[in-house]
């Protein structure tokens, strides 16, 4: 799925100008155009309906706070929003996963929460296989690998779009995708042990004033 289905060039340019001017109507239109897409990315990474909604809200508010960094071209705003959404989701789930391994307050929620799947048997099987692979990816990839996976593989951004959204080079995005592929190949190779060592709590990503839109 292309990320720019909502805003043809003229629309994107107009939104950029109005957002930069602090136009709340434009913000509302942006929300309506992209809320579902942002939510799907958030729900894919969070596997928790309540958290995904929080992340969706935070994504749009973060976008609003960063509206000054928008340039005035006619590029779609989708990749920029998805970049923010991926980072917000990973921040939110990092805390959540930590809580899980710490048997802290809400540990059982993530453990038991799974993305909802349709109720017929075929869909359930597909869903289970899907979930298993997805969970492996979520559990074993480094946050930055997961981030580009979510953007390029799950949300349909090109490596170039993801690179611009994250403020890194396209080469960096590709090398993260290569690392993700190598890691996932290892996990799905039947010659390998059924599962690797349990994931350890991860250090928080280096603080980075990220996601300002590069010019």
């Amino acid at each position: 799925m292309r990320s720019d289905q909502h805003d043809e060039p003229g629309r994107a340019r107009e939104w950029r100008e109005r957002l930069r001017a602090g136009d709340v109507e434009a913000f509302t239109e942006l929300f309506r155009a992209y809320a579902d897409q942002v939510h799907r990315l958030a729900a894919s990474l969070c596997a928790d309906a309540a958290l995904a909604e929080d992340v969706t809200g935070e994504t749009f508010l973060t976008a609003w706070r960063r509206r000054d960094t928008l340039h005035t071209g006619d590029e779609s705003l989708g990749p920029w929003l998805m970049g923010i959404a991926a980072r917000q989701s990973l921040n939110a789930t990092r805390g959540r996963r930590r809580q899980l391994s710490f048997v802290s307050r809400h540990g059982h929620r993530l453990l038991a929460d799974t993305p909802d799947i349709a109720d017929d048997v075929t869909a359930r099987l597909d869903g289970a296989a899907r979930l298993d692979r997805t969970q492996r990816a979520v559990a074993h990839l480094r946050p930055r690998e997961l981030e580009v996976l979510a953007l390029c593989v799950w949300s349909g951004l090109t490596p170039q779009e993801a690179a611009r959204a994250l403020g890194v080079s396209a080469g960096t995005v590709r090398s993260r995708l290569f690392r993700a592929r190598a890691r996932l190949r290892e996990l799905t190779d039947p010659a390998e042990p059924a599962h690797g060592p349990p994931p350890r709590p991860r250090p928080v990503l280096n603080a980075r004033p990220a996601l300002e839109e590069p010019r």
Partner: peptide, 20 residues
Amino acid sequence: DDQLLSELRTLALRPDPAPL
């Protein structure tokens, strides 16, 4: 890119969460 992305699509299937 296409090869890389299409292999990744099979290695990590896109989750199908309930929509908003």
